[in-house]
């Protein structure tokens, strides 16, 4: 079961990463942002938005499969560790620079996600002990 979770979480992270990279490419090519049909046509008129759709749909089905077995907390937390892969890829793909605020903020966020994962795990074991 642990292997099932690990595979599921990695798959979720992969789909989420693909989606975020594609979202950025799709949005950048559809600028300027407008609340009208022209913007929608620009978004759906280039291939990147479909990479985002694949990532989104893949993440959706992985998420539903995980939710059936895993509690919402750790599944959600695991899905958000994609911030690490997306940040690293955005340096390489989009020439972004990680300033101090982003690095310190990311460390706090990741520490928070780990806290939430551990909290969920402990509560899960406590509930099982009570049940048996």
């Amino acid at each position: 079961m642990k292997r099932f979770y690990l595979f599921g979480f990695l798959l979720l992270m992969g789909f989420d990463t693909l989606a975020q990279i594609s979202f950025k490419y799709a949005g950048s090519q559809a600028l300027p942002v407008e609340a009208n049909l022209a913007w929608l046509l620009r978004v759906f008129g280039q291939p990147w938005v479909y990479g985002a759709v694949i990532g989104y749909v893949g993440a959706f089905f992985t998420w539903i499969a995980l939710l059936k077995h895993a509690p919402i907390g750790p599944a959600f937390a695991a899905s958000h560790l994609e911030v690490v892969s997306v940040m690293l890829l955005s340096i390489w793909l989009f020439d972004e620079h990680l300033d101090l605020a982003r690095v310190v903020g990311a460390i706090a966020i990741i520490a928070g996600i780990v806290c939430l994962g551990v909290a969920e795990d402990r509560e899960h074991h406590a509930a099982q002990t009570v049940a048996t």
Binding site: S28, E82, V83, M87, A106
Partner: peptide, 23 residues
């Protein structure tokens, strides 16, 4: 659609970090 619009206006590394508030 909202997220595409959001990310097109700021760097991706900043956008995904700000999106963590959803947790």
């Amino acid at each position: 659609l909202v997220w595409i619009a959001f990310l097109s206006l700021i760097p991706l590394s900043e956008g995904v970090l700000l999106g963590s508030i959803n947790i």
